[in-house]
Design a protein around this nucleic acid. Structure first.
Lengths: 219, 219, 219, 219
DNA sequence: AATGAATGAGGGTTCATTCAT
DNA sequence: TATGAATGAACCCTCATTCAT
């Protein structure tokens, strides 16, 4: 966020923020990222403030609720993941584009494990963050899925939400260093399963009875 | 766990446990199951005691740590899931056996969502419960995987641990009623991906470079 | 409160309370009385606990809300004031009985100024304590008023509630030692005003237009 | 309080206050009146500042203590009540003048309930505001009482302070809409009691033993 | 002068855990 | 053994007050 100018005091508009305010906000964000990554999303806000080297009141001024802090911390991360999907839209092989997004996702998550925990919590609590993140990521991943489905290369009964949840769920269930290779393996299996397999399709459908056959996705 | 007899520490004699002790232990377990399923694994122990109709002290006597209580609550559940795998070992189609286990697992979990949360917590904390559960379930699911791999019907670079984590992770990332159909869809995709696909295999291997090619599993 | 016996543990009835629990409860009450009298009804509960020499948790166990503590502290006081009215019902001169109750009330309040503050707060917040106290005292004072009105000795357009509020209001608005004499003087004036004054009545009524002429009181 | 000019501390010269300072001071006063009337005298100063549309720092500059703000807010109100008494000094019937002042007081207070709470608080804390208000109002009401006493129409053992406290106390002890009629009734009783009643006087004195018989008032 | 950010003390509340009965 | 009282650490949150801009 960059403030360039400020308005006259009587018009009640944006003003140049104080330098220390900007610095503190940034410090709190950094600290929160670290603390949440280490102690999970239920870590104490006081711990965050302490690590940031600011008073607890300052933390509250910038982020009145825990949710607000989460959001500020994770919104950017979510957006990066989402932009990655945008770029992959132009890749030649649609299925491969999806696989690459997922693999990049693992790398990405590897450096911010706390985000996954926060998302998991958000899923449970049905919070703002959840709504925002899922909408954003769903849109992104959805475009990849749609392209592949349109090309007839991929089964169409998997929604972006399904995929996202599976992806984050897999990541969440790990806590050991080196977990990535496990998830990468699983994702490969996954993408292989997504490919349309003419010979197999009939059988699969017969035995599995998907609840919503090829549900028309909203986007 | 049922106490039939135990040694008295001072007299070195065998004694029967008091009837009320046995009854209370059972009550606490029932209450804990209910409370953890409803309020998540962080629910207050006092709530458990109250629901069990015993004093908090009694709860602590039987289960000195929260972990102990978790373990006692979920050990049986885990064992049931595990036994299911034993039975499926005799099914004709090994891949189908796996699929059936996973689908049963969804049904099972649907009635005890708390267990998944507890496992997720256990994963994070690297606790006893985790060790026990994973060992037990890994053994069970491993035998299914091994049979399929031995029959040449399934790729061999997915470990039972991978599979379990993916399974529980998917379940965990849901909170809406009706989440099962989503997970079932994903599991189908998964199993399809696991089948050996001669034409595809080469390509997959070439592009995916699995970290541990067909790692020899410990069990 | 005296516990004499306790019931068998299986019938889930009253038990003999632990000696320390009784002692602590009493200590907290004493401390609360002192602290509320000194610092007003908004004094910190931690201060009460500290003065009582118990942990804050103990205070909360005995009195889960501030209200509960108030009530325990002031219920007895209110009852004493109320019983005094009962006794005066048998006095010969009804008007004098009222006057004597009021004068005794001043003496009573003089030793527990905190009660008045608590009542004042209770009036503002419309709390339980208020409801209880006013019902109790209203009934008591109402019987004195009724007797006097029935004897034709006193105007009937003043309700017990009116009277109580005036009484406590006068007491509340003082903070200096020796305030009692001031209130006593005012109460004399008051009671004089309550006497039926034939010659004056017409004039008073003409000019004052009481909102509810001789409102039938509920009790 | 209106600044017309002030001395600059360094140059020892007279200066006009900045226009915005004057405006802000006025805004804060208006806001404080509203906020205190609504939320009681313990309302947060930040709420006042926000309503006034100024920074909290500005509020503190103009009114370094909460007391200062109270005083500024209520000084004018007190003066209005006091002036009313001045005007009534010329009424023909001294007792009726008193009654009319009290009745007007009720109306007045009805629109600024916060003032009563502030005064009550001030009584408890023995603050500046209390001193000022009581001196001012005492003088005003005292002149009404004196006139009546001099005319032999009213007992002389009630001081203006007594009267004021009783008046405000009655008002304070109410929180329901429509409380005015109750207070008006009580005030009528009061004034009736104040009238000299030859036949009754002896009896009253005999039984009541006033602490300070007809205390010579200071003013 | 005005602003609003920073601070931290202070109070409320919960709960895991220990211990007296 | 069973009970539930006692304890206090830990958190959350608010706000009066100070201070940098």
């Amino acid at each position: 966020m960059i403030y360039i100018a400020w308005m006259d005091e009587h018009t009640d508009q944006t003003r140049k923020p104080r330098a220390d305010a900007v610095r503190n906000r940034e410090r709190v964000l950094e600290a929160a990222k670290a603390v949440f990554n280490a102690g999970g999303p239920e870590a104490s806000l006081e711990a965050v403030a302490k690590r940031a080297g600011v008073g607890i009141g300052t933390l509250y001024r910038h982020f009145p609720t825990r949710e607000d802090l989460f959001e500020a911390v994770y919104r950017r991360e979510v957006e990066q993941l989402s932009e990655l999907a945008e770029q992959l839209k132009n890749a030649s092989d649609p299925v491969d584009a999806l696989r690459r997004w997922l693999r990049s996702g693992v790398e990405f998550v590897a450096t911010k494990k706390g985000m996954v925990a926060a998302l998991a919590l958000a899923v449970q609590s049905g919070s703002e963050l959840h709504a925002f993140s899922f909408e954003r990521l769903t849109k992104a991943i959805g475009s990849l899925l749609d392209r592949a489905a349109a090309a007839g290369a991929m089964r169409a009964d998997v929604s972006p939400e399904d995929l996202l949840r599976a992806f984050f769920g897999m990541c969440y269930m790990h806590d050991q260093p080196g977990w990535q290779s496990s998830v990468l393996r699983m994702l490969d299996v996954f993408v292989d399963g997504l490919r349309v397999q003419p010979a197999m399709k009939a059988k699969v459908r017969a035995s599995a009875k998907p609840a919503k056959p090829a549900a028309k996705r909203k986007r």
